[in-house]
């Protein structure tokens, strides 16, 4: 190593050390003053620090408010917050279920109940643990068998570890499951009247506004709805729209499953009318689309969901929209 390289590495090392020192919640005015002096000492110091910052630019932490999940909450509330989705009128998907299906639904429902009952019979209800996140929160839980569950924003679920079966009920929201293998105990996820059975795998379940979507990252899962049974393999996604009796299956890019776990959402050629309701799940201040043209604009890219200001900045930079923040909502309208 020649002298230049040695000096360069020494500076890089200092830059990393500064990054770590300033990343501490304890860093105060004195630390920042010392850092300023170091930056002023040599332009190479700034270059080196830029490189550290830019190398780590693509990740940013999710806002989490600690404490919520340290104690599993009691019974989940009946109504999830009604503040999140402001574009509900755009999703009028409810259809009445024809009477002829009711018999089939009843039969499968009884089968489902029997399955749950067989699990319940060895467990007292006290063994059910409830978990919930608020808007903008994210949590990671590890079950006693090593299964990992990531809860996305505004999610409610319960977990029951039985002797014969491990059962999760997702009441609302979104979760990513990385299931630990256990040949003696199956793993099921109940979402309303659909049962998802895992066969050693990782998958994500999304249940917002009664629309269920399941994406498989590894392995195989079976899904049983009152009238249909489907098997999904890696890279497949099943969607059951609110009120619909059947599921549709599509392929999904594995890298794009549950990117929220890294604090970003990835969109490819998606219209704002479908992006905005999704973004609004993460923040208390809603984005509202002001006109049809704006709603129809399509976006491809990565949006940061850990910081709403940054997210809005990206949208503003990448699309021909005007942003107005009236303090209660963020209004997006077309540029003249």
């Amino acid at each position: 190593m020649n002298d230049n390289a040695a000096t360069g590495e020494k500076i890089n090392q200092q830059a990393r050390a500064w990054y770590v020192r300033l990343g501490s919640e304890q860093a105060g005015a004195d630390d920042w003053h010392d850092f300023t002096v170091w930056l002023e000492a040599d332009p190479k110091h700034i270059d080196a620090y830029d490189r550290v910052e830019l190398a780590l630019l693509d990740i940013s932490p999710q806002e989490t408010k600690s404490g919520v999940l340290n104690n599993p909450v009691g019974k989940p509330e009946e109504n999830p917050s009604d503040k999140i989705i402001v574009l509900q009128e755009k999703r009028r998907l409810l259809k009445p279920i024809p009477r002829s299906y009711l018999a089939g639904i009843a039969a499968t429902f009884i089968a489902a109940l029997a399955l749950l009952f067989s699990a319940n019979i060895f467990q007292s209800p006290a063994n059910i643990q409830h978990y919930a996140t608020n808007i903008g929160e994210y949590e990671n839980i590890v079950l006693s068998d090593g299964t990992r569950i990531n809860l996305n924003t505004n999610t409610k679920l319960s977990v029951q570890m039985g002797k014969k079966i491990r059962a999760v009920t997702l009441y609302s929201g979104e979760a990513y499951f990385d299931i630990a293998q256990d040949t003696k105990r199956g793993f099921i996820v109940n979402v309303k009247d659909t049962i998802i059975t895992d066969i050693g795998t990782a998958f994500s379940v999304n249940f917002y506004e009664s629309t269920l979507s399941v994406s498989v990252a590894h392995g195989i899962v079976d899904m049983q709805s009152p009238v249909q049974k489907v098997r999904l393999t890696k890279g497949q996604k099943a969607v059951r729209l609110s009120g619909a009796k059947t599921m549709t299956i599509a392929s999904v890019e594995i890298d794009n499953i549950s990117t929220w776990r890294d604090g970003v959402l990835v969109f490819e050629n998606a219209p704002l009318s479908s992006i905005v309701p999704e973004l609004n799940r993460y923040f208390k201040t809603s984005i509202v689309l002001m006109d049809e043209q704006t709603a129809a604009l399509t976006f491809s890219g990565v949006l940061n969901i850990s910081d709403q200001d940054k997210m809005i900045n990206s949208i503003e930079a990448l699309l021909p929209v005007r942003v107005m923040d009236d303090g209660r909502q963020i209004l997006l309208s077309g540029k003249q």
Partner: peptide, 30 residues
């Protein structure tokens, strides 16, 4: 720290290590 936004103190508590060790781990990772 980076993905979940935990403070150094939280990381130290959850991993049962000192805050200084947290810094060392972060430095290594970077």
């Amino acid at each position: 720290h980076k993905f979940r936004g935990q403070s150094y103190k939280q990381v130290a508590q959850d991993m049962n290590i000192s805050v200084g060790t947290v810094g060392k781990h972060l430095g290594k990772a970077i």
